[in-house]
Nucleic acid binder design. Sequence first.
RNA 1: GGAAGGGUAGCCGAGUGGUCAAAGGCAGCAGACUGUAAAUCUGCCGACAUUGAGUCUACGUAAGUUCGAAUCUUACCCCUUCCA
Length: 400
Amino acid sequence: MSNDTFSFEIIESSKQYSNARLGLLRTPHGVIETPAFIFCATKANIKGVTIDHVKNEGTQIILSNTYHLMLQPTGKVIREAGGLHAFTGWDGPMLTDSGGFQIFSLGHGSVSSEIKSSRGSCSPDKKLSLLKIDDDGAVFRSYIDGSVIKMTPEISMQMQIDLGADMIVSFDECTPYHVSKEYTALSMRKSKEWGLRSLRYLNERGDGSQRLLAVIQGGVYEDLRLESVDFANENGFFGFAVGGSLGQTTFEMREIVSMVMEMLDRRKNVHLLGIGGIDDIFHGIRNGVDTFDCVSPTRIARHGTALVKYDDLKNGKRNINLNNGIFRGDHSPISPNCPCYTCQKFTRAYIHHLLKAKECLGGTLITIHNIHTMNRLMTEIRGGIKNDDLNRVCKEWGSE
RNA sequence: GGAAGGGUAGCCGAGUGGUCAAAGGCAGCAGACUGUAAAUCUGCCGACAUUGAGUCUACGUAAGUUCGAAUCUUACCCCUUCCA
């Protein structure tokens, strides 16, 4: 693999915000213009839509999850299929997550109630299935058949090699918020160790067609974040992924993101794990984040909410819940200015009907629209950086 | 004509003397969702009242029994099934 097959090149820096930048992320499966949004295809599909829709609405890169795919259909099946690209039909750039987040979400309960602000909406009686975590790795009970599954950096790396995504992520422990600083420190140091083991394994067993991102841990503590960043800066990772507990409130999350972004080697690409609110994206980009991933655009779509550019909606909101009764007889598209497949062919009334009738096409059509809208947001943000006009773009999308 | 079983909030359906404005489900109304065990979860859901306290109207209709009735009695109306 020649050196320029894989690279991250900063092609323009914002004058309005010194850290915001335009980049080109080159991978064997194509070039990603950054800032970019990465859609979650956790179980090797973006829920509810075909890969053609994903592509046609302007998606540059998608993400799948090691933990889910190792349970089902297993790495063996995907390796035999020729890797995730062949398996899914997606021929563009791809990232896989390591499974480290599952140590958190399967071990400590709901995501949203813990890492981010708000209360959890997960059903409370879910049984936690993390059995053990030590220096070697983590042991889970499979949520599919109850069998006992071991995850180590080496297992995660081998799985990610089998999956064959362009960018892969170090195995880490996503530290919850409600633990002591001592635990957070130990956990972060464990993730450092696991990062080294991940790197070593990939260098020894990989074929050179993949690059590794270091995960930045350290919770809400500046000194721990700095220690984690120093480690990542010094150890030859291709890029970075900011993860772990980002505090309890959105405000806290942004403070941590700003803090970490100041510490990282600015020559490398930075991914912000799991964050995808429009305000949070603008905040991240001003601070130099290059890529984001989040389940929110596709999840809320399945639940009936369509994202709409603030200036297009003209009612002071940035999304509409198509479950709401006011759309029963609304024969206009979701957004008047949207060229997506859904808005070209279908009306709010029709989609409202599909949702009410529990026809899964409703969620599908909104997912298509939301994918387009997120990609359009990122396109306009890149335009804003290029033209030193990011604040105008921000306003148009109803962000502060 | 005879026999039996029923009629409960928008719908279905539990409840058989007080703890009943009445379980549960559906429908309706709204909200949440941030490295996906999520096409899921939460709240409201007779009327009036800004919420609460509260007031009123309600379990086919009418009249009773009772301190108290969706629940017991009588009559009537309607529905379903079975027998002729």
